[in-house]
Every structure is written in C-alpha cells, then in structure tokens.
Design a binder for these strands. Structure first.
Lengths: 232, 232
DNA sequence: TCTAGCTATTTCCTATAGGATCTACGAACA
DNA sequence: TGTTCGTAGATCCTATAGGAAATAGCTAGA
C-alpha cells in the first residue's frame, strides 16, 4: 500500500518531560510559582509526583527560554517579572522582528493559515466579551493565549523558521500575562489584530508590516508607563 | 568585614552537564559528529565516559539552540548544514538584529568592552595571517570564534539582554564554521570589523549601524551564492 | 515475489540511590 | 557584641537499573 501526500499528521510523541514542562509553565503563568521563587528540583518532582530526572530536563528547557534561572549547584529560580525597562526592551525586539514577519507572511499566506488567524481572532473577541467579573483572570489568560497563537501563526507563515523561532522564544504572552496577573496591566487589542488580518488578506505587504508595527507600538505606549507606575 | 564594589568576580560553578555541552558543541563544529547523524544518548555517554543523565540535559540545551533535533522516543540527530536558503535566512535575521545592537552599543560602550573588541580584532588578524597550509581548519576555527566574540560583545553592550540573547542564540559562527568545514566556504572580514570598531569608538551611532549592516550584507552576498554552488 | 506478523535487540525513558556541595544554625572565642 | 568555626540538614548532581517503546530482521503464508 502506498499513499500519496496526505494532510493528516500524527501528533508528535510525548514524554513525561513534555508534561512537566507544560505544568511548570502553567504554574509560572498563574504565579502559583511566584516570580523570583526558588524551584527545588526534588520539590517540584514530589509536587508533580514524578522523579527528578524529567524535572531537570524541563527546567533546562525553561532556562533556555529565560523563564527560570539556573545557578550550578545552587538551583533554579523563577524569572522575575519584567519591569518597565524590561518590558520596553521586549517590545523593542518584537518591533524589530514581527513587522518583518508580517511583511514576509503576506506573500506566503495559505488558506489554512488564513483560517487559523480568523479563528484566533474570533477567540480573542470571545474571551474579551465574556469578561464577566471574577472570571477575569481565566478569560484574560485565554485571550493572551489566542493573542500568542495569532502572532505565532504569522511568524511561522513568514517562511523563515529562524525568524519564527526568535519570535516564539520570546514568550511574550507569558511575560505579559504575568504582569496582568500581578498588576492588572492588560490590553484589549482585538481590533488591531483585525487590521493586521485585513492587510494580510488583501495581500498588501506594506500595510501588513505597518499594521503590525502600529499594533506593537501602541501596546508599548499603553503598557510601559503602567508598568512604571506599578513599580512606583 | 565589608567590601566595597569589587571588580573581580568568581567564575560560575560548573557541573558535568556544562562540560558535556562544550564537548558536544566542539564535536558538532568539527563534524566529528556529522550533520544529520544520529546521536544516541547512551552512545554519547559511553564515548564521553559519563552517565546518560548529564548527556540528556546537554542535548536538551543544544536542542533549544537548534543544533540538534529531538524526536520523543526516537532520539536526537545533529542539525543539517544550512543550505543556501537557510544561510540567507540566517543573514536576514542577523541584519535585522545586529545593526540595531551596534547602534545601541555606541552610546553605552565602556572602556572594558572597547578593550575586548580591540583584542578580538587583533585575534582575528592573527588567525587570518597565520593561515599557513593545513593549519587552515584550526586557524579558521580560531578566527570564527573571535568573530563570534566580537559580535557578542557588541550585542551585550547594546544594553538590551533580550536582544543580546537573540543574537547569541543564533549560533551564527557554529553554522558558518560547519559550512567552511564542509565546503571551504570562508570569509576574511577583519577589515569590515575594524570599520565597525572605528565607528563605535567615534561614538557615531549611524555609522556603527551602517558599518554592521554593510558587513553583514557583504558577507551574505559573498557566502550565499557559494553555498548555492556547493549544493549544485 | 510480496505482505503480514512475530521475535529480538537496541535505545529511550523514568525512577532510585548515594556522593558532593551548599546553606543555615549555633556554640565558642575574642 | 561581633566574628569564626564546626556541624547538621537540605539540595543538587551523577550513576545505575529496569520497564517501555521503537526498529530491524526473520519466518511463514498468499
């Protein structure tokens, strides 16, 4: 039996280290592990009921993304929250990378990616709308995850995997969500995302690049001062 | 006893995983581990005479840098050489990031960094000069390492650690050195680096940014076509 | 000749255990 | 009172072992 090109793909096999990674990431985002907190390998292993070996690997991966810090023979600590300066630097980098990704993606956007983007945008609107009362955290986390997915879809569509990786590895939404969690600093940007999608669908590279840049610069201008206040 | 600010710093503690990482990196650069080759965890452990645990961690770190690929429950493989397209994409990203780093570094360059840059430049000239016969590989590796150090010093001097990390993590010199090793594709760029340093020392941000961009664009124009030929 | 299924081997993955290192605490001394 | 030293505890680090999964090779049957 031979198959032609098929569209279904088998999801990659997972090992325990992948689950530990996800669990730690979630704990970090919701600050059940506080910024700056110590992360003992054995402690995490006991808490998650696994052995230290996969925990070490998950922490190694998190360290490569800057979400935890390692000091050899000392241990790991959760990364501190971004201060105003750090947030500003994060945006500086995003503004360097993501408008270019949007430009490149314009010519290469296929139907599948277009569909993803539209769905992610709908998801953002939903999360923002159902913003009733104390469900806020949960909803904003949903929103942040859709937001991240939207940006990552564009990054991948750029066709430059190194560029996509650089963008993804910044873990922007983790940092932004942690700030929201701590200080209530948030940002509803569904409309700005819609503008990006419109430009992409129109196949207008200049407009797509500009829309992305505008979106990020607006966010920066909105968020950085608030992070500054929060520090007081 | 209290000390004021001291300039000496204790080197960070090292664990076995750090040595394994260095060893693997070296083996990858010199293609003692060939591009695309399988990397069995137990095999590496036996070869380096350590246990599999630190090997796993070192491989996790290498994977985060894109130098090896992991497939869960299958194993690791060494990353393939960059083809012409990949090389082009690497330069695209560098041209996005590094000119900005040079611009930012202009205002913040201190005496220590200036000294480092000058030393690295001298090192490059030395390695290029002692280019006698079959010592070529070794010399070019020295050259590539000085080249990398030069760029990383500027990246750090930018004052934006995220930007510095993004530049460093590309591991440009590893990819370039592997290409040289395989195809003899090399590049003597000491003079272009001198131009960057001159602009930095003059405190001219525009010139520094431009010199860095020119350097990278020249390299791209020189190297990408050759990678294309090598593939034939 | 080709396919299906079984077996054996290799390799990854996870858990466990012990040695090495670091931190914290408290006693002894100046 | 303040400093030094030594001990105890916790934690990291490395090695080892066994279970689980994947690959390769072989046999049997169509």
């Amino acid at each position: 039996m031979t198959l032609g090109a098929v569209s279904v793909t088998i999801p990659p096999r997972r090992a325990l280290v992948d689950d530990v990674y996800d669990a730690l990431l979630s704990l970090l985002m919701d600050q059940e592990i506080a910024p700056g907190a110590r992360l003992s390998i054995d402690g995490v292993a006991r808490q998650l009921d696994v052995s230290p070996t996969p925990v070490r690997e998950a922490l190694t991966r998190l360290e490569a993304e800057g979400l935890v810090l390692r000091e050899a023979r000392k241990g790991y600590t959760a990364a501190e929250l971004l201060d105003a300066e750090g947030l500003d630097q994060l945006y500086e980098l995003r503004i360097l990378l993501e408008p270019r990704a949007a430009r490149l993606a314009t010519a290469r956007l296929d139907a599948a990616a277009r569909g993803e983007l539209a769905a992610q945008l709908r998801g953002m609107r939903q999360a923002a709308a159902s913003d009733g009362a104390e469900a806020g955290f949960r909803n904003y986390r949903d929103f942040a995850e859709r937001d991240a997915a939207f940006h990552h879809t564009i990054a991948r569509a750029s066709g430059n995997p190194l560029l996509a990786d650089a963008i993804t590895r910044l873990r922007s939404h983790v940092h932004l969500y942690r700030l929201y969690f701590q200080h209530g600093i948030a940002d509803d940007t569904a409309d700005e995302h819609a503008a990006i999608l419109t430009a992409l669908e129109a196949g207008d590279a200049d407009a797509a690049e500009l829309a992305m840049r505008t979106h990020l610069e607006t966010s920066r201008a909105r968020l950085v001062p608030r992070a500054d206040e929060a520090a007081e």
